[in-house]
Amino acid sequence: MLKFLGALLVVGAGGAAGLWVAQGYARRPEELRALQGALGLLATEISFALTPLPDALVQVARRADPRVAGLFRDVATLLCNRSGETVEEAWAKALDRFASRSALRDEDIAALAELGAVLGVSDCEDQVRHLALVVERLKVQGLRADEEARKNVRLWRYLGFCAGAAAVLVLC
């Protein structure tokens, strides 16, 4: 009985680990898509409404996919504190926090990080150009992430359980 319970635990743990990895693969393209949408909203706020950046970020946070809204809300909050932080610093800080809870890879975060240095410090045209550039990069990375997700999600879902089962067999 005890042996059976132990075996069940090992299979369960292997399965959970597999599911966790698989979920990472599945979440990344979704987050990348959500970010593209949110940056598109930001570009609209900037170019059409000329909304000041802190307000524009709040608007984006309100309307964007909840998975990425936090990033924009954090930057807005930091900017509204009037602690003398530049957009670059606020963006870097918020992005750091966002990276730790998202499924994004380093290269995705690096593409986003570049925005910090340019947000709010040039004219409309330039802002829109920079945002479009980042959206384009995220799109390319999104396609690659889709491909990886298709290959890996199912693989890892099964692999976890199989590895668990294999371990049980070896141990018995």
Binding site: T51, G120, S122, D123
Partner: peptide, 13 residues
């Protein structure tokens, strides 16, 4: 920094 404060980080506006 001063420019960011006086423009509310929104030079484009």
């Amino acid at each position: 920094r001063m420019l960011q404060i006086i423009t509310a980080s929104s030079l484009y506006a």
